[in-house]
Amino acid sequence: MIDLRRLQVLRVLAARGTVTAAAASLHLTPSAVSQQIRLLARELDVELLSHEGRRVRLTPAAEALLAHADDLHARWEETRAALAAFKDGEGGALRVCGVSSAIAALVAPAAGALHDQGVELRIAEEETKDCFDALLTGEADIAVVLPTPDVPPADDPRFEPSFLLDDRLDLLVRRGHPLARRRRIGLAEAAGESWVVKARDNDTYAVLLAACAAAGFTPRVGHQVKEWYAVSATVAAGLGVCLLPRMVPIPAAHPVRRLTLAGEPRPSRRISAYVRRGSAGHPVVARGLAALRAVSG
């Protein structure tokens, strides 16, 4: 017999790279993580870790085990989903994590419909990479995220995506800006502007880089600001421009203008909901996905 909880510890260790990082994700001590791996190795009668100084490396046996571990966990998620259908009532807890704009525009509006179905919604704001860590460790059931380099490939055996919407990006400038007289503008025309965006721990920065690269330039970041209200205020003060997602409203107090971007490709963010592979059939998870799709239109 194999303990799936110990196998999960190995999966998280492989994803995070170090015992310390895995322990942080699992809310365990590093010694507890090491112990779980040792017990799993004893169960299987193989060595799973090799020690190189203070670091550990997965052995070939561990890599072979992981090749089957994702499928085992997907089957377990399917089993849990099937068993959940036999429980009395429709309610249950649903944990959803996501980036701030998606929470405001999609997750929060879906709360009413879920509440009417007896679903207790628990929301956590996280950056995309942290959302996938939360899915893997079981701290979240659905992650609503953007396309960034941290998004796993479409064929990743651990996760299953569900498309929600394409969120167009607009150029935000102050009202007195020379470009503000235009109704539509090509992104390349703003190549010489100073950009307002936080470059660290911010999914929006990767989206900006991709959009500007497609337009043929690299943006010059003048002010490191992340929260959308603060970004809009900075633009309103004439300190730069930014790409503003269509789903993010403009504060009424800020003297700014939203300009539609013309040309192809038109910059956008593809918003998707991810779940652990095999869990989409769970009644509560299925209701959460359905509510998000309904809000997305």
Rank of each mutant, 00 (worst) to 15 (best):
A84L: 07
E125C: 14
H73K: 05
A64G: 00
L65R: 00
P157Q: 05
L49S: 10
H68V: 08
A21W: 01
E47N: 11
L65F: 01
E139A: 13
A143Y: 10
A111F: 03
R57C: 02
P152C: 13
R122Y: 02
K87F: 02
L106E: 11
E43T: 09
E77H: 13
L44R: 09
R54P: 06
P149W: 10
V99C: 07
L114S: 09
G118R: 08
C131I: 09
I142K: 14
E43Q: 15
G138A: 06
P60L: 08
T148P: 01
A21T: 02
Q117K: 15
F132H: 13
A74E: 05
L146F: 15
P60A: 07
P60F: 07
A105W: 02
I103S: 01
Q36K: 14
E126D: 04
V56T: 11
D150Y: 15
A134S: 13
L48S: 06
R75A: 14
L114Y: 07
C131W: 03
E78F: 02
P60R: 09
E77K: 06
E77V: 01
D141M: 12
L40E: 11
L49V: 11
A140N: 11
L114E: 09
F132D: 13
T128K: 02
L114W: 10
L49F: 13
I123Y: 02
R55C: 01
L146H: 12
A140M: 07
K129A: 15
V56P: 00
D155G: 00
G92V: 07
E43H: 04
L48F: 06
A111G: 06
P153D: 15
D155T: 03
L65Q: 00
E47K: 13
R80N: 12
L146T: 07
D130T: 13
S101A: 14
P109S: 10
Q35I: 13
A23H: 07
H68C: 03
R54Q: 14
L114F: 08
S34M: 06
P157I: 01
K87I: 03
A124V: 10
E52H: 15
P60M: 10
V119H: 04
D156A: 12
A69M: 00
H68M: 09
V145Y: 08
A140V: 09
A102T: 14
L39N: 08
V107Y: 08
L136D: 08
P149N: 06
D70S: 14
T137A: 09
A24I: 01
H68W: 06
L146A: 04
L26I: 09
A32I: 12
P30Y: 12
R42T: 13
C97W: 00
L136M: 14
S31T: 14
V145E: 11
L66F: 04
H115S: 15
T79V: 05
A113Y: 03
A110I: 03
A62M: 03
E90I: 02
C131S: 12
